[in-house]
Design a protein around this nucleic acid. Structure first.
Length: 306
DNA sequence: GCGCGCACCTGAATGC
DNA sequence: TGCATTCAGGTGCGCG
């Protein structure tokens, strides 16, 4: 599942291939993959055709490529003031992939959108958005001022800074976390508190911090909350260094290659296996319509919780 | 405002 | 062998 490290690997892979490129063709094969776009496939294609792409950017699990300003072109987008900037926004959802291929390369399974570009250094390339479960998608969205002051697509304006952004204020996030009555795992997955964390890295960070997922944020000291956020950052950085996690082959980089962090996972997907710290058998429990894996010895349920 | 449950969606795995 | 069911989970929305 693509979380922050996987999306960052995709962003970094896209940067040399798309920066400065001109869009020569757009083909929407499945309109469900542009459900976040306001308009039909024809409108999506018209919004991109002939535009030049800027440097890909990311916040949490949202990825976008700014479209360079249109000089002398009249916009028909009611959301957009004349001269304002827009971006091609991507969210990978559960199974989205952004692939860079040579034109005419063999078909990729579940390809939903094809974008043909001409890049000054690399010539003609095809960007493919493939998505099995259709939770992800592409959209052309106006850029607005997001948290921290930078430009983000309007649909990501509510998304908090992620732990790898220079402006991320761990002390402030820890204070907000400690106001929550909800369990720490639910808080970590709240993209309006801290972005980029999904089920895999939440389980990994909680294992490192020896915290049960249901521990209320209110029960954490500031030091414990800061230590948890440090563990979150550490696990994200390590996963990024290993090219991300390709647990069920739903994530690959822009060249279609899997990451290696699956081999370094200590919690997610290890139910029934011994804890790498204490040897107790890890348990996988139903939690919030998902699964959550923990060590019953290292990550005990807090006293007083059902 | 917060916390929780649910719909969306497909294909692999499992059960009968 | 074939059909039905279960499971995976990020996001947005509705309800209490």
């Amino acid at each position: 599942m693509p979380e922050l490290p996987e999306v960052e690997v995709v962003r970094a892979g896209l940067a040399p291939a798309v920066t400065g490129a001109r869009i020569e063709g757009v083909e929407v094969l499945d309109e469900r993959s542009i459900s976040r776009h306001e308009g039909d496939a024809a409108a999506f294609e018209a919004a991109l055709l002939g535009r030049r792409l800027g440097v890909p950017a990311r916040r949490g699990k949202f990825l976008w490529i700014p479209l360079e300003p249109e000089h002398g072109r009249q916009t028909t987008d009611a959301l957009l003031a004349p001269g304002a900037h827009r971006a091609l926004m991507a969210h990978l959802g559960m199974s989205g992939q952004v692939l860079v291929r040579e034109p005419g390369a063999a078909a990729d399974r579940h390809t939903r959108i094809r974008i043909l570009i001409d890049q000054p250094q690399h010539g003609s390339l095809e960007i493919r958005f493939a998505d099995q479960r259709l939770f992800g998608g592409l959209a052309v969205r106006p850029l607005v001022v997001g948290e921290g002051g930078g430009a983000v697509p309007d649909q990501a304006a509510h998304i908090a800074l992620d732990p790898l952004e220079p402006a991320f204020d761990a002390s402030a996030v820890a204070r907000r976390l400690r106001l929550r009555r909800q369990g720490v795992k639910a808080a970590l997955l709240d993209q309006q508190l801290v972005s980029g964390i999904g089920n895999i890295y939440a389980d990994e960070a909680l294992w490192r911090s020896r915290l049960h997922y249901a521990t209320p944020g209110q029960r954490l000291t500031q030091a414990r909350a800061l230590a948890l956020l440090a563990d979150v950052r550490d696990v994200l950085e390590r996963a990024l260094a290993e090219g991300g996690t390709s647990f069920d082959a739903q994530y690959v980089n822009v060249n279609g290659q899997a990451g290696y962090f699956e081999h370094s996972l200590n919690a997610y997907g290890r139910g029934g296996q011994p804890c790498r710290r204490c040897g107790a058998i890890m348990v996988r429990e139903a939690w919030m319509n998902r699964g959550s894996t923990r060590c019953p010895r290292c990550q005990r349920r807090p006293r007083g919780l059902a």
